[in-house]
Amino acid sequence: MASRLPAFPRFVFTVFEPISLVAGSVAAIFSPEWFISQQIDQAGHHVPSADSNILVAQQLGNCYFLAFLVALAVLYTTTELAVVRNYLKALWIADITHVGLTFYALGYERSVAIAEWNATTWGNIGITVFLCLTRTAYLLGFFGPNGPPAALRKKLQ
């Protein structure tokens, strides 16, 4: 629980870092050309270079890896159902914005041309919609009530 952290790390992790993450995401989403061009210093030029494009792709890959690590940390360490539900709600919101941004970038015609999707488009739309629908069904209770923790299930058997 963040309130138990010492003052300085609590400020950094609960105020400074969230603000910097929002600022970075806003810049990348609403001004992608500028964001890409700023990744590698190009002596005042605001034209994305091949190196900048590669760096942005690698940073995206790092974000996917971070999401993997957060999933492991949340889903395999907490016993608090509220933490898991809030994590799934955050992912649900991210699923919707991910698909929305992909639709926006591809345009309607390419977004609905499922037969022409490549593996990346299947990941960006198909798999993300599947995950979002599964999260929606879980959060609405369609899979029934949550069971006891795995350790308790083993004791009960």
Results as ranks from 00 to 15, higher is better:
residue 49 S to P: 04
residue 18 P to T: 00
residue 49 S to D: 03
residue 60 L to E: 13
residue 42 Q to T: 10
residue 26 V to W: 08
residue 37 S to H: 09
residue 8 F to D: 02
residue 53 N to P: 02
residue 15 V to I: 01
residue 50 A to S: 11
residue 26 V to E: 00
residue 59 Q to L: 15
residue 26 V to M: 09
residue 16 F to Q: 04
residue 58 Q to H: 12
residue 16 F to Y: 01
residue 13 F to A: 08
residue 43 A to G: 12
residue 51 D to R: 13
residue 55 L to D: 10
residue 18 P to D: 04
residue 57 A to L: 11
residue 45 H to P: 00
residue 38 Q to W: 04
residue 65 F to E: 02
residue 23 A to K: 09
residue 27 A to P: 01
residue 63 C to H: 10
residue 44 G to N: 12
residue 31 S to H: 04
residue 60 L to T: 14
residue 30 F to T: 05
residue 20 S to H: 04
residue 12 V to R: 03
residue 54 I to V: 07
residue 22 V to M: 14
residue 51 D to G: 04
residue 46 H to C: 06
residue 41 D to R: 13
residue 51 D to W: 08
residue 60 L to C: 13
residue 24 G to E: 03
residue 44 G to R: 04
residue 35 F to R: 05
residue 40 I to M: 10
residue 51 D to F: 09
residue 67 A to C: 10
residue 59 Q to C: 14
residue 24 G to Y: 02
residue 27 A to T: 06
residue 17 E to C: 05
residue 23 A to W: 06
residue 34 W to Q: 08
residue 63 C to M: 15
residue 22 V to R: 09
residue 51 D to E: 14
residue 29 I to E: 02
residue 48 P to L: 01
residue 27 A to M: 10
residue 11 F to P: 00
residue 64 Y to N: 10
residue 15 V to L: 07
residue 40 I to S: 11
residue 36 I to D: 07
residue 61 G to R: 15
residue 34 W to M: 02
residue 64 Y to M: 15
residue 42 Q to E: 13
residue 44 G to S: 11
residue 36 I to M: 07
residue 66 L to G: 13
residue 57 A to K: 14
residue 28 A to I: 01
residue 57 A to T: 14
residue 47 V to S: 12
residue 58 Q to D: 06
residue 24 G to Q: 11
residue 59 Q to T: 13
residue 26 V to R: 14
residue 21 L to M: 08
residue 17 E to R: 03
residue 9 P to S: 01
residue 64 Y to S: 10
residue 36 I to G: 00
residue 42 Q to W: 02
residue 34 W to R: 10
residue 53 N to M: 12
residue 8 F to P: 00
residue 11 F to G: 03
residue 29 I to T: 14
residue 49 S to C: 07
residue 16 F to E: 02
residue 43 A to C: 03
residue 31 S to D: 07
residue 66 L to P: 00
residue 58 Q to Y: 11
residue 9 P to C: 06
residue 41 D to Y: 10
residue 23 A to F: 03
residue 29 I to H: 12
residue 40 I to G: 12
residue 62 N to M: 15
residue 43 A to V: 09
residue 52 S to C: 12
residue 22 V to F: 03
residue 58 Q to M: 15
residue 28 A to K: 11
residue 25 S to Y: 06
